[in-house]
Design a protein around this nucleic acid. Sequence first.
DNA 1: AAAATAGTGTCTGTGAGACACTATGGA
DNA 2: TCCATAGTGTCTCACAGACACTATTTT
Lengths: 272, 272
Amino acid sequence: MAKYHSEEEALKNYDTSKYRTPEGYTSDIAIFTLLPNEQYKAKDEKSSKYCLALMLIKRAGLDAEGEPNIEGNKWALPGGFTQIEGDKGSAFESAKRELLEETSIKGVHIKHFGVYDTFGRDKRGWIISNAHYAIVPEQHIQDRRAADDAAEVQLFTIDEVFKLDIAFDHRQIIEDAISSVKKDMQQTTVAKNFLPVEFKLEELRQVLLAVIDDNVVNTKSAFFRKAPSLDFIEEAKDAQGNPKVTEPTGKNKRPSKLYKFEEVEPVPSIWN
Amino acid sequence: MAKYHSEEEALKNYDTSKYRTPEGYTSDIAIFTLLPNEQYKAKDEKSSKYCLALMLIKRAGLDAEGEPNIEGNKWALPGGFTQIEGDKGSAFESAKRELLEETSIKGVHIKHFGVYDTFGRDKRGWIISNAHYAIVPEQHIQDRRAADDAAEVQLFTIDEVFKLDIAFDHRQIIEDAISSVKKDMQQTTVAKNFLPVEFKLEELRQVLLAVIDDNVVNTKSAFFRKAPSLDFIEEAKDAQGNPKVTEPTGKNKRPSKLYKFEEVEPVPSIWN
DNA sequence: AAAATAGTGTCTGTGAGACACTATGGA
DNA sequence: TCCATAGTGTCTCACAGACACTATTTT
């Protein structure tokens, strides 16, 4: 005669302890934005006005009880433990919450790009990290830095970042995050997340120049010829169906056409 | 906000037990191969000789103790719990081991494509699954099926697979695996994993036709014109530097040139 | 000669690459 | 009138799409 008479009873007696389970399950998030490029050369049409930057936090040297902190005084990606919230527990939700806490904004692009789970990556035990990147328009991060004390939150350009002392295996995660965001900028329309809904072609080109190295993007005339014919980009129209243009602002002396991204996501192919 | 950081440091440092930790950490693997296409129409140049297929296992109705098994009698992806082996614990290693157990082969293409970690996806607790796909040339799986009793291991074409009763959230994982492999076939040279090192262009075309829908691949003359000029494909040469050709085999009446993949990985762009 | 496999050839229009030129409006 | 910004125009050569044709060997 069977010991249990239903799946439910068997379930209660299921022995998960046969396997070692992780001691922690976390989400880390690489928050990217664009900063003004110090090396911008107006004469070089491949030079961008922007520069890709990453937000890091400085780990406290001492913890709340005054004891030396693990990986203290090093720079790290913002992150935290994943909890089961509202009957769900997912690293993606956790990353969204973390982003909200760090930048006070919702609804920006966030993408999972890797899992870091080798035993030994964290001295505290077997701690698994889900790595994400987020793209945040510059203004939002500036707001956040002004509101905060900001000593322990800082933006670094990707050249600066590798000169820092980085905690845990976050150096590797940061390298992977940069590869991932570059790849996505080349192969998807993520660039839209750095831009307002309606943008000038030159703005879009500046954003792309800052991150990727692409023949068409590098050549101004090629980009302006090609971009309007891409089927994921269209002209912004006003209520009367007329093309929208900018008002001249700042040093900009002439109006320019506005464009927006279509909903469709292109799939580039190596075969054509 | 500044206070928040130090609180979080303290939590990370001293009391990981405040957070619920996962009850299980597993790897699942979608093993793809190609089968002969029953619907092949020689007259239609878009029709492929092959058909994408997925290996599934049938979960036993009763467990080792004779009790009803969780999600018993349903089809599932092969997988298992991740253990710390040789001082490492990683889902990727675990997936490789699982693939070795299921197909007795090493060194094939295996790729992580997702994490499934919502609480409630498995009745046994908070069990996290790392999903991978693998590409295995047909012959290897046929060997494995012959050696095994094979009742519980079966290949299904992707049309057949969604008619089955699928365990856990594996239906979703399978959908994502198929999307992922299709995308990679379009954007990377993974197709090489279905082929021998040296192959005929028509063989490559048949493999691509079976999985993706691409203008150039669909059009025979376009593919034969384009493929030899792609910089990740080159002619196979013998020791004297002469192009290699096949011996006619089977119903094939004429020799054909052999090609191989270069080491370089192309990066397709949506901007050109 | 026919069948099967594995490719080529040819035509026409679209598009890429290079780079010089134009348009707008304010100081 | 000059500058800065944001684009266009023009030229040539190459490649893409359509689809018919060829080439090699066995039966």
